[in-house]
Design a protein around this nucleic acid. Structure first.
Lengths: 197, 197, 197, 197
DNA sequence: AATGAATGAGGCTTCATTCAT
DNA sequence: GATGAATGAAGCCTCATTCAT
């Protein structure tokens, strides 16, 4: 990722967010330093602080953008009329493609390391992504694909955590893109029988 | 948690581990400072360093102990002859009871924030716990309960991540003990159909 | 030594080096603390670390500068055509004037206390100064002043150590400038007969 | 060096001094820690503090012993009737053999790092060794070997520093025992013509 | 005599942040 | 808009020393 040349304020800000996101994804909130971001962007500390009040604001900006991007991608990918089951596979695959690292893995750490105590505020951050699962389930029930007595709320939580937990796949030796793709698919394979009528 | 009075080296060491584990669980590796541990134990910095070479060693000691404890508990709980399915429920429940926070959630962060690159070393840390799942699956297949073509390796990873990801339940509003218990149970309910013949 | 007012990065850096050099000369490597340097400069710890990666780099910077200064001075002082014998006196006197403390006395301690094992790296540090002696000897032999069978390498080591060891003169009660000057001169008086034909 | 077996208090104390001397010689005063000495002796910290009030006392004890040993050795070696010139060679050689490290190289560092300001106290520490040189010179003059107008005081300082500075020989690539021996001999070769009539 | 657990001051370094230019 | 020098709190760790046993 290289610094935009026809520099304009908004570009610089976006550039910082992009670089910072990569680092936060990789190192989490506390372990990422403003110096890391400065080094990786080749900008000055002053510039970063010109665009963002502090580390926290920059972090939240990154989170927000990744979340929005995911939603946008999902909206595009899922438009076509398809079965809820198919949509689960698409959703899992999108999670894999976008490697939704920060959302689950770093938000929690960010919260405790900044001594926040209001969990509701966390939830808000990934509420939109979380609702995607709920909507798929709802659709599946309405279409008669899934069991009618599924407790959507609970199952959403389970599915959401199940899929996002796979960002750790790397740790378990799933390095190639294809291996990961298969793992995400297998996850849905495994869960679908429990959902279907 | 209050300081043991009949002071003896091993007691002090164990006391530090117990306190530190709680803090690491709560704040993760980087966000936990040695000062935190000093304050919470009411011991001096020197004493903590007398018992542990450095923060990393203390952390690994904590991880190890939690892991061992889990294994020990599992060995006791799972002795009786039971179906693999039943064992999955017992295993999930044990995960809930022991709130296996540090293992999955902080190890990854620890690794990245300490610039470790050797993934094998991480795996080793929770290998024993991880194998539990594998053995249940194997047993289920041998007993004819589960599908013969299950890829044990992959499914272990999925199940392990699935269940350990639920340590985030709190975030999603599952506060009471009973709510959590139900969630863990529901997770198995959901996955069992995908495993069974 | 007082803080420069027309603050500019390079000035600050140089100011730190100048202050640090004095302290390292006086206390050696291990006994000099960054806090000493902070106190003596009236700068903040952060500022010192902004200019120098760590204590070691700062120390080496000081060493380097003192060495360079000596070489520069020598190059100026020794330009004129003179006998090798005369040059020895000039060289000894320059050593006295510049009080080459750190080079011999602290480098060794620095090396050991930082667990360095590569002797070549030490040598490099004062190689340039060391070569001065060699060149004087060579010149003396070529000019027919000194014995032809002098082993330049060995004698350089001896002369270099001889003269630099006199930085301890203070310890032996040589306090006034004149007393020291005489001592350095006497050293050459004493050694010259052994060199001459 | 291994711990004496027929343990008795005085043996233990001596053992500590012997081990500590080696470490002080190698690392100097500040860089040597009581933990180093504990590790190297395989004794407990308590034991070391039982025998020595503190690090400083232990250090001075070591210095004292090395100095005494040197004097004792010198007294034995130099008894026989010989020329002053010959004695210089013997003295230089003894310096080489005993590797008189701590005396010159660490005392200075010890003094500054402990904020001592009374130089006389340093001198006292190695006065006895220092006097050896003076006595050789005196003898040389009385015997008619050396110039009558030698300023014994000054020349002693020069000779003493000259020879003790060679403890750095290692740094200059003189590793083998034979190489060092030659260097010490060459030093005297070089200086003798300046002393002789 | 000997031990080793405990202490807290102080050492090196990193960090988020500010601000004059 | 952008820079980078400066700051001081806080982080990790080592050290000499004490003391109950």
């Amino acid at each position: 990722m290289s610094r935009p040349t026809g520099v304009n304020s908004e570009d610089t800000k976006q550039f910082i967010v992009d670089v910072a996101t990569k680092i936060f994804e990789h190192k989490g909130y506390s372990a990422t330093s403003m110096a890391n971001i400065k080094d990786e962007t080749n900008l000055s500390k002053g510039t970063i602080y010109y665009h963002f009040k502090n580390k926290e604001e920059l972090y939240l900006h990154c989170i927000q953008q990744v979340s929005n991007e995911f939603i946008r991608n999902w909206d595009i990918t899922s438009q076509t009329e398809q079965s809820a089951e198919k949509k689960l596979y698409i959703w899992a695959n999108l999670n894999n493609i976008m490697l939704q690292k920060p959302i689950m893995n770093t938000i929690q750490e960010y919260f405790v390391s900044t001594n926040k105590h209001n969990y509701d505020a966390v939830l808000e951050l990934y509420e939109p992504e979380f609702q995607i699962v709920g909507r798929i389930l709802e659709e599946g029930i309405n279409r008669g694909e899934f069991k009618e007595d599924l407790h959507i709320e609970d199952v959403s939580v389970l599915l959401y955590n199940f899929i996002t937990s796979l960002e750790n796949a790397e740790l378990f030796g799933y390095h190639s893109s294809q291996e990961k793709k298969n793992l995400y698919k297998l996850a849905i394979d495994l869960i679908v029988p429990g959902l279907k009528k």
